[in-house]
């Protein structure tokens, strides 16, 4: 590299530019019709001199880019450095109902490398008040419907689907390669089965579980807590859903995104509880 040049990232690819190059001269050289300039995750309006290590993405509104640049453009609003880490990561999700489908979508949107999802169920009308499926998917196995939906959101995420009922024997076999495991079941005894068979086989590997997300109690009652050495728990310190309390999209979504954010923090080596 020449001494009078600096290294930056343009659309997630390394590029050498001359010292003193500004954002707008970069745009002029590479994509003059771009109407959005994103610098280090945030859109900027003023021109400025580039510094070594800056990440720049140039976007033309309404343009559907080619496959080669789409992934980089999708990551334009990430906190710098996040995409490179999670692109290499694998996350398992056990159960893709209200929690699991929303967690999968959140992780797919931020460009996770690989998702392994397992569920034995099919999409039913009563799922649609909270689960991320569509009316024309009723009757379809959830893992297949989810795979289709994820492909429409971010085709760069590898999705491995398993249409089966999880048990003590198949959990270690299916999820041995994950960096973080996510529990998204509704049956309480299944939660214990998953945690025991996963942590029993892979001690210390993080598993993010949820409880206490029923009804429409205030969102702020839901928190993320570290429990055991592997266990991160999202919930409201109450017991599980009782008769008379339903499961609905807003609060299930709050819990699901607590879980998804805990996964992200764990993948980045950060404390999920803070």
């Amino acid at each position: 590299m020449m001494a009078d040049s600096i290294q930056i990232m343009l659309s997630e690819r390394p590029l050498s530019v001359a010292v003193g190059t500004t954002l707008f001269t970069l745009r002029e050289a590479h994509k003059p019709d771009a109407d959005v300039v994103v610098l280090n995750g945030a859109p900027v309006r003023e021109d400025r001199v580039l510094e070594a290590g800056d990440a720049v993405v140039l976007i033309r509104r309404g343009e559907i880019p080619g496959r080669d640049t789409l992934e980089a453009l999708m990551a334009a609003r990430h906190t710098p450095g996040v995409h490179a880490v999670i692109k290499r990561a694998t996350v398992g999700i056990a159960g893709v109902g209200g929690l699991g489908s929303a967690i999968a979508i959140a992780l797919a949107r931020i460009g996770l490398g690989k998702l392994i999802v397992a569920d034995f169920d099919v999409v039913e009308p009563s799922n649609l008040n909270r689960q991320q499926y569509f009316i024309d998917q009723i009757g379809q196995p959830k893992v297949e419907a989810l795979r289709d939906n994820l492909a429409r959101i971010n085709p760069y995420v590898e999705v491995e689907t398993h249409l089966l009922r999880l048990n003590r024997e198949n959990v270690p076999a299916l999820f041995g390669g994950v960096d973080v495991m996510v529990e998204a079941f509704d049956a309480a005894d299944q939660k214990a089965m998953l945690v025991e068979s996963f942590t029993g086989r892979f001690p210390g590997r993080p598993i993010v579980v949820a409880s206490g997300l029923a009804g429409h109690m205030p969102s702020n009652t839901i928190v993320t807590r570290k429990m055991g050495p592997s266990l991160v728990m999202v919930g409201d310190l109450m017991t599980a859903a009782a008769p008379g309390t339903g499961l609905m999209a807003p609060r299930v979504g709050v819990a699901a995104h607590h879980q998804a954010n805990a996964v992200l923090r764990l993948l980045l080596g950060e404390d999920p509880e803070g």
């Binding site: 309480a188 939660k191 025991e196 206490g212 055991g228 728990m233 409201d236 310190l237």
Partner: peptide
């Protein structure tokens, strides 16, 4: 530990706490 983590997941956050 694995047993206690499983029980906490099954019986909820108050139990785990």
């Amino acid at each position: 530990l694995s047993l206690l983590e499983g029980l906490s997941a099954q019986y909820g956050e108050a139990f785990g706490h």
